[in-house]
Write a protein that binds this DNA or RNA. Structure first.
Lengths: 385, 385
DNA sequence: CTGTTAGCGCCTTCAC
DNA sequence: GTGAAGGCGCTAACAG
């Protein structure tokens, strides 16, 4: 699912080096002029209006400590009349803790990350936590900067789809709980919620091998990427289990740039001796395969069998439907949030959760050589046509 | 694009009524025990280590005010060694202003909202603003609660895909700039960035009328919804321009519940005298139409012409491709963010921006009666088949 | 150039 | 049951 372009080393500097205004002190440009700050009601205002002291007003409002029913009544009324909204900054300052968690994701435009965010969001909202979201474009420096920002807000925890170990290290050093999602860079050091990349990829590959395919191209973004690594491993396992050598040019890295991906995929499919089956390692690559094979007039599954890691809505809407393993993206976010909450409640040994990705066989895969003979299973909604 | 289930009245209470712990004072359950808060470095620590006073340290770090180069050097070094990250809460408290904006959206799982968020995010990040995100599930009470939360954080502004006028009123009363996105509830009262629903819907309808269709069903979630209203209006305009009566049962409300939508759509298409063309008012409804027509064995465009408001990736991947108008969702978020920034910089008369939705003709629409004769234009990537 | 002073808004002992 | 006092961490005068 990565959509990022770098994975730079875990520089993890606490503050940016050298003399530049430095990240430590975000070079506050100029105190942003508050247009006409209409003096918001403060606790003192409420207290005064209710004819009590600030401390009593505070107790009345928070419901902690003793307050005479009558006084409480007046306080609540006063607050309502004034449109009083307590200042979270002041509260957090006092409490040395903010009821918020940082959520650092690589790319909200990618369905996968958006769903992870949605899953985390719903759990955290239910528990009364606010989310500070940063779409860090999958860039390492951006992600570290984002981490620093949420650290500055004194968030209670951090969720991240990491791009390097830098974020986790930085956050850990500040004693703030963190859960890595989807990718893992500090195994054993901090919590993580991942999918079972190996098994999913193995099943997909076995499926193709079982259909007689031998020229199976696995297309990943970058071979060094952690999710890719797992998928490549599964791919290898399947070959090994079948007692066969992994083809030399079996794994291809197509990069992260959309245009480049299209080009590479087009090139691959146009070779003199093209693969008979393609395995796209994620939804972005899968889309490129689908478009390019169409452009080249390749019929699926007749001319080319096609499987993908990470089920996307379109894969069940096109015809034939695409055979995939589905990543439980929403659940991934939700589980990560729950794990974070429990870690915030009490420290403990880091735990890694791995979620299953069910195989979904559709019509995009067929036995090699036998033309126009889709395999068992559903075909995508339009197969009727 | 709405995905929500309510639009309740603009209750907009400042605080929740009655005696309940009340929203004003979020019934702080119990001061969340900070596990083992490892005393984070504070400005005083940095100052001490650098052998200067706190104010000097502050100046050195922020780069405001005079500081001897040598001292500055020591301060920066000390900060780095201590892993000092300034406390945003304290800063905000002092500054009476937080460099963050609240982003309240209805449903991150819906591609449309996720892209709006992505667009806004990128602009705001570039300007140094953090995003406090709330996925409010399109519920009015949730949205108001979310607004209160971000207000409490003293955000500098708010972006919202509103579900009622409540949020805007609440936020406005606190003198915080707000921009409504996609839907508009306080026309003339606050800024908004919308799409041109009327024109897009008119073009789509005209396209169908031009192909000879007369039984054209427009499927919306709820007729009372503001985006639906615009689309319905455009639909009406097209009929009027053609000098024809709008069919009595032309507009159907299918609700927000996914299952219910499927049912209603299935029922519609199974009628004895079904429409010859369907106009889905958004991507969610469109998906239901696509699936149901497949289930019923209807051929598109032979048996049924099909258009949709809001282009989704799958619409250009299926065959035939779906004729749509594309909402510039990312741009919507970006423009809203820019408008908010300018409003934060200086107040002014509320402005409403309306973005165009280009018509994209693909293969899902054909002349009535003439079978298997797709219209001009592209056909979706798989048409080659 | 640097330190002292004061206070942002809130909460929380601790007396009364 | 209630108020007075102090301080969370930081910054902005204002002296020196």
């Amino acid at each position: 699912m990565p959509q990022s372009r770098q994975r730079a080393d875990a520089a993890a500097l606490e503050v940016a080096p050298s003399a530049v205004p430095s990240a430590t002190a975000p070079a506050v440009p100029t105190p942003p002029v508050i247009p006409d700050a209409p003096a918001r009601a403060t606790l003192a205002d409420v207290a005064q209006r209710a004819g009590v002291s600030r401390s009593t007003a505070s107790r009345g409002l928070t419901g902690r400590g003793y307050v005479a029913p009558a006084a409480r009544e007046r306080i609540l009324l006063a607050a309502e009349e004034l449109g009083y909204v307590p200042d979270g900054n002041a509260r957090s300052l006092k409490a040395r803790h903010t009821p918020a968690v940082g959520l650092l994701v690589s790319d909200l435009r990618n369905r996968f990350y958006a769903e992870v965010a949605a899953g985390a969001s719903s759990v955290l909202r239910d528990e009364g936590y606010t989310i500070v979201l940063v779409d860090d474009t999958g860039s390492d420096p951006e992600e570290v900067a984002a981490a620093r920002t949420v650290l500055a807000m004194r968030v209670a925890g951090v969720l991240v789809t990491p791009v390097s170990a830098a974020v986790s290290q930085l956050v850990a050093r500040h004693g703030v709980p963190l859960v890595e999602i989807d990718r893992q860079f500090c195994r054993g050091e901090c919590d993580a919620v991942l999918v079972d990349n190996v098994t999913g990829a193995r099943e997909l590959t076995e499926h193709l091998l079982g259909l007689g395919h031998r020229r199976i191209a696995l297309l990943v973004n970058e071979t060094g990427w952690t999710t890719s690594a797992g998928r490549i491993k599964g791919y290898h396992q399947a070959w090994a289990a079948a007692g066969r050598e992994v083809p030399a040019d079996g794994v291809e890295a197509v990069g992260f740039d959309p245009d480049q991906i299209e080009d590479k995929v087009g090139e691959l499919l146009s070779r003199r001796r093209p693969p008979t089956a393609v395995f796209a390692a994620n939804n972005v690559v899968a889309e490129a395969v689908w478009r390019q094979s169409a452009r080249l007039g390749l019929r699926i599954p007749d001319d080319l069998s096609f499987v993908a890691f990470d089920d996307s809505p379109w894969m069940s809407m096109v015809s034939p439907g695409i055979t995939t393993v589905a990543q439980p993206s929403v659940e991934l976010g939700a589980r990560a949030a729950r794990l974070l909450l429990s870690r915030m409640a009490k420290p403990g040994r880091p735990r890694t959760t791995r979620l299953d990705c069910p195989l979904i066989v559709r019509g995009s895969t067929a036995r090699l050589g036998r033309r126009r003979t889709p395999v068992k299973g559903s075909e995508g909604v339009r197969s009727a046509r």
